[in-house]
């Protein structure tokens, strides 16, 4: 038979223990800190985004601690108990107190995370402020268009049967509310004022992803989904499609401009109806 004793190899144990500690535990932490300066979250630019980022940081600290601890223990055990010693392994297979401890401690930590997560989630999805700027977002293969209700504050009815070259949005010509609607290829919003995206799709699933604003909401054909947020920094930002939507999924990019109230009004006034 193959010699079983050759597998009692302290060298292999030391190698594996070291690999787990150096590559996984230390390597994981070092590479994460290294990545922090290179490949990390795009700068946050919304109010709730700050809360989300805080939750991410807390989760990072908790999971990072457990990650290092468990791998240290694993590495040390693998190193330590690989010894080619004479005596047998210990016969030990039950310890209720120990097991209850490592049932209840993770449960307590997870409950804390649940509570914190629930609070942030509830805040993100709190009722839309009445003064929020309403933007009707239409996703279709493979572009985004945005509609503002115009001076009357009401969106006109749209229907897919009205869609034509001159009426890409499918506005109902009989609906007077639609006459002053403004349609744009760019999304403009006002800094420090809430905006709500009312999201539609005309063909397949898409996802309205604003990385800087920590916003993501699927566009679902047949229903309106919504997400409200308050941008906090002026600038030009990217909008991406995050749900597989077909061959052009990777080019379904949009632009978001956050600007002052004045600049926004000027832009809006310059748009054709």
């Amino acid at each position: 038979m193959s010699n079983l004793s050759e597998h009692y190899s302290p060298t292999t144990g030391k190698r594996l223990g070291l690999l787990i500690i150096i590559m996984v535990a230390i390597g994981g932490v070092v590479s994460t800190f290294w990545a922090k300066n290179r490949w990390w979250f795009p700068p946050v630019a919304s109010q709730h985004g700050v809360d989300v980022d805080r939750l991410v940081t807390i989760t990072f600290i908790v999971t990072g601690f457990v990650f290092v601890l468990v791998h240290l223990v694993l590495g040390i055990f693998v190193w330590r108990y690989a010894a080619a010693r004479e005596e047998r392994a210990i016969y030990w297979h039950d310890h209720r107190t120990l097991e209850l401890t490592y049932t209840l401690v993770p449960a307590a930590i997870l409950l804390t995370l649940i509570s914190m997560g629930a609070v942030t989630w509830a805040r993100v999805h709190s009722p839309v402020p009445p003064q929020a700027l309403r933007i009707d977002v239409l996703a279709q293969q493979f572009a985004w268009t945005f509609r503002y209700p115009g001076p009357d504050g009401t969106f006109g009815r749209t229907e897919v049967r009205f869609v034509s070259r001159d009426n890409p949005r499918g506005m109902d010509p009989a609906d007077p509310a639609g006459r002053d609607d403004i349609i744009s290829r760019e999304m403009h919003i006002v800094v420090n004022e809430p905006a709500v995206a009312l999201i539609h799709s005309r063909d397949v699933l898409h996802s309205f992803f604003l990385p800087n604003f920590r916003v993501k909401q699927d566009a679902v054909p047949g229903m309106t989904t919504q997400f409200w947020f308050t941008p906090t920094r002026e600038g030009r930002y990217e909008l991406a499609c995050a749900e597989l939507c077909g061959v052009g999924h990777y080019i379904m990019r949009g632009q978001v401009v956050v600007e002052s109230k004045n600049a926004f009004e000027t832009w809006l006034a310059g748009q054709t109806h």
């Binding site: 996984v24 939750l55 468990v70 989630w121 993100v124």
Partner: peptide, 28 residues
């Protein structure tokens, strides 16, 4: 032994995704 390490690493990143507010960003 490698399984234990991989399961721990993957399990911990699951805690991020389980929290819907965090998942808004990480989803997809």
């Amino acid at each position: 032994i490698g399984f234990v390490s991989l399961f721990v690493t993957g399990g911990l990143t699951g805690i991020f995704l389980a929290s819907p507010a965090v998942d808004i960003y990480f989803q997809d």
